[in-house]
Simulated assay, not measured.
Amino acid sequence: MKFKVFVDGQHGTTGLKIHEMLENRDEIELLTIAEKDKKNIKKRKELLNSADLVFLCLPDVASKESVSLIENENVKVIDASTAFRTDKNWVYGIPELTSKQRDKIKNSKRVCVPGCHASGLIVAMKPLVKNKIISKKHKLICHSITGFSGGGSSMISDYENGDFEIIGGQRPYALNLNHKHLPEMKHVLKLKKAPIFTPSVGNFKQGMLVISYLEKENLKKKNVSKDDLLKLYKDYYNNELFIKIIENNDEYLDNGFLNPMKCNNTNSLEISIYENETDLVIISRLDNLGKGASGAAIQCMNIMLGLEERKGLNIAKN
């Protein structure tokens, strides 16, 4: 049996990557639309309703429009925009989130893929909130650096064809402190306050680090150490193929530096922890196009279609 899959928005960065990951899979029949017809509502509606599963790789408004065009109640939808990430009728697409999340995804017809920055923060912080290391009133502080591929075709062109002296090596953005991933960070972690979050774009194409800062004295459980958190993470993510907890930082770092690109072209997310007497730093490393976007979407598709969860997905060998 072949599953019919349509990528609405197949010509964007995420859509292209999903197409690439699915085009040689025997159990998938990819339905396609010519670029000249991508705004033809009649043709899109026909494809949206003839698929077993649809990926929406569109801006928020267009995603909502596509969902409204689906009349076939059997069509499963995975949305990669921010349109539905805090919607109670949609399941959040991190299978590792809780012990019940995988079944929720499996039994749902509406799943939203998390934002890449949000994935890094949520996977790192969820075990701490769940185990009451962090209070729901805690004000998280987080910084992220990501490859320029997350900015779409225009940004990719700027970096690949631009002058390094003009573009620079690292550029913070969303400095109004209102990044579009903040609502889902707050919602999924069930926090009373949104984190203070500053993202930045690095002069590399792919990969990312999401860095969270914690003062030990401000944690709900006092005197928590790196070793305590390592044990907690290993228990929480026990047997998860795509989540790796780093125990030996000396072996993990490259001469004291942390390379954001080492999980590229995989669906892995690695968590490493650093501390001194008063503070903890927790870093998630992932591919912004992998576990942060297209890889996460494929993982959810595999679950929703009853396929092997890791099929077509790579695991980092670091």
Results as ranks from 00 to 15, higher is better:
V188Y: 04
L191S: 08
K220D: 04
K231Q: 14
D227P: 05
I196Y: 13
P183N: 02
V210I: 13
K192M: 01
K190Q: 11
E184Q: 11
K186G: 08
L209Y: 00
K220W: 00
K220L: 14
K186F: 07
I211P: 02
L191M: 10
L232D: 05
K216I: 04
M208P: 00
N203M: 06
P183V: 05
L182K: 11
H187A: 09
I211H: 02
S225H: 12
V210W: 00
K193F: 02
L182E: 01
G202A: 08
K180S: 14
M185K: 02
H187P: 01
E184V: 01
M185G: 05
K190C: 08
K220V: 01
L214F: 15
V224N: 12
H181Y: 04
F204E: 00
P195E: 12
V201P: 00
K226L: 12
K220P: 00
S212N: 15
D227Q: 14
K222V: 05
G207D: 04
L219I: 03
P183R: 02
N176K: 13
A194G: 07
L232G: 02
L219M: 09
H181I: 09
I196D: 14
E217D: 11
H179D: 13
D227Y: 06
S225G: 02
N223P: 01
P183L: 04
T198E: 11
G202C: 08
V201L: 14
L182F: 02
M208Y: 12
S212P: 03
K180L: 05
K220R: 03
K221D: 09
L230T: 01
L232P: 14
D227M: 09
P199K: 09
V224M: 15
P183Q: 04
F204P: 05
L229A: 07
L189W: 05
V188C: 13
